[in-house]
Computed example of a mutant assay.
Amino acid sequence: MRYTIFWPLLLLLAGCSAFSGKDNADPPSELVEFEPELRIETLWDKGFDDSDDTLLKLKPVYSNGMLYIAEPSGEVSSLDPETGERHWSVDTDSPLSGGPGVADGLIAVGTLEAELILLDGEDGGERWRQRVSSDVLSSPAVNDGNVVCRTTDGGVTAYTTDSGEKRWVYDRTVPVLTLRGDSSPLVSDSQVLAGFAGGKFVGLSLDSGLVNWEATISTPKGRTELERVVDIDADPVLVEGTLYVSAYQGDVAAVSESSGVVLWRRDISSHAGLDASWRQVFITDAEDHIWSLDATNGATLWQQKKLHARKLSAPAMVGDTLVVGDFDGYVHWLSQEDGRQLARIRVGGDAIRLKPLVIDEIVYVLDEGGTLSALRAHPIEAERR
C-alpha cells in the first residue's frame, strides 16, 4: 500500500520533534524595511479560478507570443502578454491538475480524472483526449510529434500528437510514503528527462522509452519512513547540457544530460525548486533560505536568510535580479550578485507557490487566489536622473 503526504501537512510535520528535532515550527520572518533600489510597476492583473488544492501545477506558460493558462475548473485560455486580454478560452469539462505544456502550436493538459488532453494552440479546439494510468500533477511535455506525460503512479508515457496513440510507457515503483506531486518531464535531444520519488533521475529514449541512464540524486536517510522521504518534485532546469535537480530531504545536484554522471551535489533540501544559468544556481531550500551556488562546482556564493519560513516559491531570474513569491502574496526582488533585497510588492493576500514566469524582463505571478499579475521593475536611480 502507498501513502501520500500532502504538502501543507508536511510543513506542519516538519516542525515536530519526531521529524526534525524542533519543538515547534518556526514562525515566518517579519518583513524589514530597506531602501528600495527598484520601483515595481503592475502592468495588469486578471482573475482566474482559485483552487483548494495548493499542489496543482497549473502554471502559466509562454509560446509564440501568447500566454497560456489552465484553470482547475477546466478552462484553458490564450492571453495577450502585454494586456492580459483573452484571445480565446475553452472549457475542457474536466478538473485540470497539470500543465499546460505548450510547443509546436499544441497545448497539453492533465486532469485529476486520469486524462491527457491535447488542444490546438490557434483556437483551443480539442485534438484528442486519452485515458492515462493515474492523475497528472505535472506539466506534460510536447516535442517533435510526441506528448510525454508523467503520472502520479510513477509512469512516464509518450503519445503521438497526431492521433494520441500510445508509443511507449516507462513504469517505476513508487515508495510506500511520498509527497503528493511530481516534477515535470523535459524533452531534449531525443531524450526524456524525468525525476522520481526516491531520489532517482532518468534519461529515456524518446523513440522507445528505454533507459539511457539513471542517476542517484539523493539517497533516503533516517530511521522512520517519514524521515526517509526523498522526492524530486520540483521541475529540473536544463542549461547547456547540464541538468540542475533538487530533492526534498535530499540534495541539489548537477547532472550531465548526455551521460547521467553527477557532476556535483550539495546537501540542500528543496521542495520549491530552483533556477540556473551557466554561472549560478539559485535555489529555495526547505527553510525558505535562498542560496546562490557556483554552477560549475556547487560552491556557495551567498545565502539570503531574511525571508526565513515565508513559504517561498522557487526563484526566477530576471535580468541581473531574482524574484520569489511568498505565503502572504508578496513578490520579492533580490540581487543575483549578493542576495540583498532590492524591492517588494504585494499583489494580493494569497500565497504564491508557483515559480514566477519571466518573459522579456516582465514577471508573471499567479497566486492561489487565481490572480495573474504582470510586473515590471524599474531602477530608481535611473528614474531620478
Rank of each mutant, 00 (worst) to 15 (best):
T4W: 14
I5L: 15
F6K: 12
P8C: 05
A14Q: 13
S20F: 05
K22R: 15
K22Y: 10
A25E: 13
P27V: 05
P27Y: 00
V32H: 12
F34W: 01
R39G: 11
T42M: 14
D45P: 06
D45C: 15
D52F: 15
D52V: 14
T54S: 15
P60Y: 02
P60G: 05
L67C: 03
Y68R: 03
A70H: 01
E75Q: 13
V76G: 02
S77Q: 06
D80H: 05
T83E: 02
H87R: 15
G101T: 04
D104N: 03
I107G: 11
A108Q: 06
A114V: 07
D135I: 13
P140R: 09
R172M: 04
L177K: 04
L179F: 13
R180N: 08
P185Q: 01
S188I: 03
S190V: 08
L193F: 06
F201I: 08
V211Q: 04
W213H: 10
S218Y: 06
R228H: 08
V229S: 04
D231F: 07
P236Y: 06
V245T: 05
D267G: 09
S269L: 02
A272R: 01
D275M: 08
F282C: 14
A286I: 14
H289W: 13
I290K: 07
S292G: 14
L293N: 02
T296Y: 14
L301Y: 02
K306Y: 10
L307G: 06
V318W: 01
V323Q: 14
W333C: 11
L334R: 05
R346H: 11
G348Y: 07
K355N: 03
I359F: 06
D360V: 04
S373M: 05
S373H: 07
R376F: 07
I380F: 04
